[in-house]
Amino acid sequence: MICRIWHGITPRAKADAYAAFLERRAVPDYRSVSGNRDVAVLRRDEAELTHFLTVTHWDSEESIRAFAGDELLKARYYPEDRDYLLEFEPLVQHFVVTAFEHSG
């Protein structure tokens, strides 16, 4: 299993709207791809900025490729992100999951 982590920063004043956008648009998009196991959107408010992380788990590089394209570490953005994000980090991080437990 592979964990893919993306980071973005918005102005604090736009953070609630961006969180709603991610829930409405990005999460269903991730979940629609075969091989996506789960999605978590994390938020941290700091003074005038808000940081977001999307943390996703995938079965394989092939399943990530179906979502992100052939450049596996290239960040994928939506056109609407221009309305919220202060910068566009070019890359995401991938980690091989060595232990994972899900209670459910």
Rank of each mutant, 00 (worst) to 15 (best):
P28E: 03
T98P: 00
V33D: 08
W58L: 03
F67V: 02
E46D: 14
E101Y: 10
T54R: 01
V96Q: 13
F21E: 01
Y77M: 03
L49E: 05
I9G: 02
P90H: 08
A66W: 06
W58V: 05
I2A: 05
A66R: 05
R24N: 09
F67N: 03
H51I: 03
A68P: 03
H102C: 14
Y30F: 12
R37Y: 06
C3E: 04
E61G: 04
R4S: 00
E71I: 00
T56E: 04
Y30E: 08
A47V: 14
L72D: 07
R76K: 15
E89D: 14
D38T: 11
E48F: 15
A99L: 14
F67K: 08
L91G: 09
E23H: 15
G8K: 11
S60V: 08
P79K: 09
Y30T: 04
P11L: 12
A40G: 11
R65I: 03
A47D: 10
R65H: 07
E62I: 07
A15S: 10
H94F: 08
E62G: 09
L85S: 08
T54Y: 01
V41T: 02
R31V: 13
Y77H: 09
R12Y: 10
P11Y: 08
L53E: 03
L86G: 11
L85G: 01
E89R: 15
H102F: 11
P11V: 12
A68R: 03
A19K: 05
R37Q: 13
S103G: 13
M1Q: 08
H7K: 14
